[in-house]
Design a protein around this nucleic acid. Sequence first.
DNA 1: ATCTGCTGTCGAAACGTTTCGAATACGAAC
DNA 2: GTTCGTATTCGAAACGTTTCGACAGCAGAT
Lengths: 335, 335
Amino acid sequence: MATIKDVARGAGVAISTVSAVLNRSAPVSEQVIEKVNKAIAAVGYVPHGAARSLRSGNSQLIGLVVPNIANPHFAAVAREIENICLIAGYMTVVYSTGQDSERESQVLKMLRVQRVAGLVIIPTRSDAEHGSRLVDQIQVPAVLLDMFVEGLPYNVIKTDNIEAGRLATDHLLGIGHRRIGIITGIAGLATNDDRLGGYLQAHAEHGVPVEPGLQLAGNFDQTQAHDRAIELLQRRDRPTALIAISNLMTLGILFAVRELKIKVPADLSIVGIDDLEFAAVLDPAPTVVVTPILSMARRAVEMLLRQITQKEVATGAWDIHQPHLVVRESTRAIG
Amino acid sequence: MATIKDVARGAGVAISTVSAVLNRSAPVSEQVIEKVNKAIAAVGYVPHGAARSLRSGNSQLIGLVVPNIANPHFAAVAREIENICLIAGYMTVVYSTGQDSERESQVLKMLRVQRVAGLVIIPTRSDAEHGSRLVDQIQVPAVLLDMFVEGLPYNVIKTDNIEAGRLATDHLLGIGHRRIGIITGIAGLATNDDRLGGYLQAHAEHGVPVEPGLQLAGNFDQTQAHDRAIELLQRRDRPTALIAISNLMTLGILFAVRELKIKVPADLSIVGIDDLEFAAVLDPAPTVVVTPILSMARRAVEMLLRQITQKEVATGAWDIHQPHLVVRESTRAIG
DNA sequence: ATCTGCTGTCGAAACGTTTCGAATACGAAC
DNA sequence: GTTCGTATTCGAAACGTTTCGACAGCAGAT
């Protein structure tokens, strides 16, 4: 492969001059610029990213660490971030953790080896211990997305998850439901706990006692949610409504009710948190609390790029985005 | 950041010895190995990928170029490939082309700058002209996924798309449909043309003439498919069945029939090509031809890794995977 | 005693850039 | 004609590795 040396030879100038042309980092005469460009085309020169990165100390690589890229929710985030980074001249490296902190470590290690310039991460856990481990493992500008960890030196972009849980629950309580089940994600994760907190808060606001037996713990995935839903809905005193704490879990519940031949919304109301793109053609089309994930992603990467290119320092501030309710067919008032 | 030099100093050995320990590239005494490992831990050494890659000439980076990572179909591919690469010690860099060959060029350029060790690509076009452009732009081991381009020196992993189209159409013809519409993707793309070819072939096999007016060209996206479907289904002589040539297009059609309040399968049968993970809870759950995308992805990356690590040379062979039909609720026999 | 072969370790070059101080050219000013 | 300043251009060092030939030490063969 042609190197900058070949270009220099071809153009009859010094290597450093070619570099100056390439990076517009020093004044070069029009005449020479033209010669260099011709030589570049002639030898088919493509800069060597690794060499550049080694010498200059910055890598043009942005890491994105999400729970699972196969989840449409996170895929949408990835697409958005990839786009913005491409325009800014950065490459995106996406990794899925599978909500496994071992794998998260492994992934962060690789990202460090590649000396990514910064990263957007949805951590696998949100306790303080994990937080300090993260700080050790990150070592570059980072923005936390959709999940916070106590007191880290990173900016956080998140949904108001308490409000999300509250909105879902309030809707059901508002239309007369009194026994509302909820299938939660992984306990201890901020996103999960906050949403559950909103569920409790809404009950308190309406003066309705919560039944602990109606809260079932899954993880964030579809089959678990399905299994928990089956379990809960087969009880003879099953709830009249059910909340899923994340998108794929909503899907899991829909599979479950279909299996049990439960009529929705006649016999059961369902509300999901996080939208599904194809929600409108699901049967039944679920009422959900939608979170503005794309604009959050955009904010996150813009903030990150500012930290990288303008050496802007992370304030640790939280940028909180408000969710809203979209009513579809899966909920109905009961008397 | 600590470098290999710091490790060497810490362990009291030469740099090259540390390197030998790191890469097991030369025999080193147990005693020294231990000293080196201690020093690595002590100074918190993380290898510098760019330096390594510059010197050794290989990058540990695999590029994945797909039409759109936000499409669950491709997201699943990405996840699978990421997994396998991680195990093999490679990082994956995913890019979406948006089926735009300009963007494809830009992306390939960036991947060349990063000197990716190889790539898995679903090209934006499949004509010969584009093919030779691709060869220019790739310059590393590559495997073509799910789409072939005439006579390129790359192995191809693909679905038997003719069979996929045939299967979908044969099913409908077999249950009595005679006027079958089809919403196609981008004409000229092998995947599209082959599936359409299967549609024609099935008609021929059944001795049923095709009505050209029932073939509508979309691109591969959902809204386009939706619009074409609306158009087609509002004709007074609309077909009794409709085929969508790809997954998101199936979704688009479902949205359309819902909008037009057409009863499926009573008044219209629908078959999609490519499955949707949540297909079973759609309304109606679509009958589809499923393509074994995950095993294809696995094959592709394994083949690629073999080419990279074992310098195995691409034969240009096609690895063709067979699709199969899954009947759900969206199709019904007519008499 | 000397030579041979093997093991383990070392030193220095090389990979392709960027960066920065130094060198050159050329008018303008004296 | 010398000096100075400005505008370009150049050369060499440096980034952190891997790689490879050289070398030291030592055991066994001569």
